[in-house]
Design a protein around this nucleic acid. Structure first.
Length: 425
DNA sequence: TCTGGGGTCCTAGGACCC
DNA sequence: TCTGGGGTCCTAGGACCC
């Protein structure tokens, strides 16, 4: 249900074109580079040495070679031998993202940061006599002039259609996708272009002879429910452009906090695995404390060299934000989970979060908890003031394992996801 | 030659309670 | 002595998003 009753809304979706790559290009031009990465075949990609060799963002010329996001770098290079590859700089991207959000917030307080490079704006009550298109043009122009990169903007009456509109022709374009335009602009698209239709669902739909969004719209809800459960109903609604979820400025309240890492070499012994786990817990738990949250559930995940994934989680007797307690829980979980086969990836996540203001503790533990709290707070403060490596645990010295792992985009709000039952929120 | 790292939500099955 | 049935909580796995 919209917070504005039954009136029609005006929603914009702003999407940065090839975000990481555009931001790299803009930064380099501002710092004296003569080459614009956006105009040549180029990608932002991780380094192969530490086994993070995938394409994170690509230029449009690179796209013309068939290079895809998520693809391994050697494959991308084989498609385009002259490909320019630049490493990612996450702190730069966070700054660019913040600057974008700051600019957009001048247009409406009803702004939802959907991801690092995407934003929804409800401008229903911010039009002041101007047309949505006029506002979109001004936003687009200002971003180009003031920030140095381009965006796509989608305009419609709900978030789903605004997002579908912004995905049309790129870059630097403004599109509308009002309900009356759905048959012409959305229904001819392949079904995988629809928001929430991923690889698996698209394949399943194709097997059922549904290839376009129009065919999905015309499939009977009963048929879809039989094959996709509650998901089927959602897909059918989305194909008709139905979505009444509000633009929610508070969607960024975290429900889970986690860190994970692909190790540069296979981990085959418990000592090293636990050190990685500790370094992940250090980072994740300090994020927890910075957000004034405590974790009720700890979860550990691993990926083996065959890329198989598994996880193990447990509810804690009492929620905590203490590094030591969280690490104890994580190492116990790891020992139960791991069968000794070599690992390429380890992760730690905290969920069932609650505010650290009022939580239940047993009276017995109160003194110890207070002491741990003070210790964590002191360590956090030293790392904040003197750098994250100012204080490291002795066990990491000469271990070859970084004392703090993860948190590359720390400070960035989490993304909201659709709740199947009521459209998405 | 192995596919990153950060999230959200749903489902199925089991335990347990009344 | 015909194992009914509703509800909650928990966990692992899988789908999706950027």
């Amino acid at each position: 249900m919209s917070s504005y009753g039954s009136g029609e809304r005006t929603i914009l979706h702003v999407d940065v074109n090839s975000a990481f790559l555009s931001w790299e290009a803009a930064y380099r031009l501002q710092h004296g580079a003569s080459l614009d990465l956006r105009e040549i075949p180029s990608v932002v990609g991780g380094d192969r040495e530490s086994r993070r060799g995938i394409v994170l963002a690509k230029s449009i010329p690179a796209k013309k070679f068939g290079i895809k996001t998520g693809e391994v770098l050697w494959q991308a290079r084989s498609k385009c031998p002259n490909l320019v590859v630049v490493p990612p700089d996450y702190s730069l991207y966070l700054q660019c993202s913040n600057a974008l959000m700051e600019l957009l917030s001048q247009y409406t307080p009803l702004l939802e940061r959907y991801s690092v490079d995407e934003c929804f704006l409800d401008i229903t009550h911010s039009l002041r006599g101007r047309s949505p298109l006029t506002i979109a043009r001004e936003i687009s122009q200002r971003i180009k002039n003031e920030l140095g990169f381009t965006v796509n903007i989608g305009i419609s009456n709900n978030k789903l259609l605004a997002k579908m509109a912004s995905e049309l022709e790129k870059p630097d374009k403004i599109h509308t996708m009002f309900p009356s335009e759905i048959p012409e602009k959305m229904w001819p698209l392949q079904v995988n272009e629809l928001f929430m239709v991923g690889r698996r669902t698209a394949a399943k739909l194709n097997m059922l002879n549904i290839f376009t969004i129009g065919q999905l719209a015309n499939a009977s809800p009963k048929f879809l429910t039989a094959h996709f459960k509650s998901y089927g109903k959602l897909l059918n609604q989305f194909a008709w452009g139905i979505d009444d979820s509000p633009v929610n400025p508070y969607a960024s309240e975290a429900k889970g906090i986690g860190n994970s890492t692909t190790t540069p070499f296979d981990v085959d012994n418990e000592r090293e695995a636990l050190l990685y786990l500790l370094s992940l817990v250090e980072t994740a738990s300090s994020r927890l404390r910075r957000a004034n949250l405590m974790a009720g559930v700890v979860s550990v995940s691993i990926r083996k060299t065959d890329l198989s994934f598994s996880s193990h989680q447990r509810r804690l007797p009492v929620p905590t934000d203490n590094t030591e307690s969280l690490f104890k829980a994580a190492s116990a979980l790891f020992k139960e989970l791991w069968d000794g086969s070599p690992l390429r990836h380890l992760g730690v996540a905290f969920s069932s979060l609650c505010s650290d203001g009022f939580y239940q503790i047993s009276l017995f533990d109160e003194g110890r908890i207070l002491k741990n709290k003070n210790l964590d707070a002191s360590i956090d403060a030293i790392r904040t003031h003197f750098g994250s490596t100012a204080l490291i645990r002795g066990s990491f010295v000469n271990s070859g394992i970084p004392p703090l792992t993860g948190g590359v985009m720390d400070g960035f709000p989490v993304m909201a996801k659709p709740a199947l039952k009521g459209g998405y929120r």
